[in-house]
């Protein structure tokens, strides 16, 4: 889509909490109709960025324009055109499923009749039609998530912000959410999401940035990132009891990069099958061999490291 000015434009955007810098000068542009992802480990600054874009957290520095407006001065006008699905569901526990949507619609000044019609439509969309009169409490995690997504759509937003939309959901629920988000994307809705699921980013995002420690460490389409930061294929080798390092030394010449993990050795190569043949030619006998296409996960781990961050 070519609509000129990007919907979201951030330059040198900073968010500080006291001495702690959560977002450390990032540049981001999101165009209309795009599905844009923020990828990164916990504490990378994804949620802080999302809250600034959602106009519920004033930036500490840098420039931010949403829909061509200033989030601090034009907060209400911008939020009127955003749909926000926060990381933690904050549904109204005193209302029913349906009322959660109709009441929320009223916050946007949507007439009651329209609100009722839209609530019914959205409940069907997220497959909660039969739970319309239930309270929120007894719903499963997946149902609450879907309801929160439906709520984010009640004002027919131009941009939908989804902060970890499928974290904590079982596979069925995740796929249902993905499918609904994909439909929205097809309808031309601009999606901005954060995730630490690589498959989610690969499935949904046209373009994404990888964040680490409040900074952007890589940017591009999922495909481009894989090409840029990983090889075409990855060979995973498991060896029997012996130390993996002794083998790894011999494998160095095989691929562009070799990574030794406690339980297996990863060899990044362009041709996996050829590499496996060479492994055999070297006289090595791994107990388990897996050749796979490299994924965003390889890129992610390469860029942000394997150390656990909380």
């Amino acid at each position: 889509m070519t609509t000129g000015r990007p919907l979201i434009q951030a330059r040198g955007l900073v968010k500080r909490f006291g001495d702690f810098t959560a977002v450390d000068g990032i540049d981001v542009e999101v165009s209309a109709g795009e599905a844009f992802g923020f990828l990164g480990p916990n504490g990378a600054g994804k949620s802080s960025t999302m809250r600034m874009v959602g106009c519920t957290s004033p930036p500490s520095g840098g420039e931010l324009h949403i829909l061509g407006m200033d989030p601090v001065r034009d907060g209400p006008a911008i939020r009127a055109r955003l749909g926000v699905c926060p990381q933690l569901d904050n549904l109204d526990p005193e209302l029913t499923v349906r009322e959660n949507l109709t009441t929320y619609a009223r916050y946007f000044g949507i007439p009651r009749r329209v609100a009722r019609a839209r609530a019914a439509e959205l409940l069907d969309f997220v497959q909660l039609g039969d739970r319309a009169d239930s309270k929120v409490e007894p719903l499963s995690g997946g149902m609450k998530r879907r309801l929160t997504i439906a709520r984010a759509l009640v004002n027919e937003p131009d941009i939908v912000l989804l902060d970890e939309p499928t974290t904590g959901l079982d596979p069925q629920a995740r796929h249902l959410v993905w499918e609904r988000l994909f439909r929205l994307k097809q309808q031309g809705v601009t999606l901005v999401l954060t995730t630490h699921y690589m498959d989610e980013a690969e499935q949904l995002c046209d373009r994404l940035v990888v964040m680490d420690g409040g900074r952007i460490v890589a940017e591009g389409s999922p495909r481009a990132l894989i090409e840029q930061h990983a090889t075409r294929e990855v060979v995973e080798l498991r060896f029997a009891a012996e130390s993996q390092e002794t083998f790894a030394g011999k494998l160095d010449a095989l691929g562009e990069r070799v990574e030794v993990l406690p339980d297996r050795v990863l060899v990044y190569v362009s041709d996996g099958d050829a590499a496996v043949a060479e492994v055999a030619a070297l006289g090595l006998r791994p107990t388990n061999v897996l050749v796979r296409r490299s994924s965003l996960e390889d890129v992610f781990l390469h860029l942000t490291g394997r150390t656990l961050v909380d």
Binding site: G54, T56, G75, P76, A77, R79, A80, L82, V84, P86, L88, N90, L91, D92, P93, E94, Y104, Y107, F108, G109, R151, N155
Partner: peptide
């Protein structure tokens, strides 16, 4: 506890 207003401030309501 209900975090009710966290949801409300994401709308035009101030």
């Amino acid at each position: 506890y209900m975090k009710l207003y966290d949801g409300v401030i994401a709308t035009p309501v101030q």
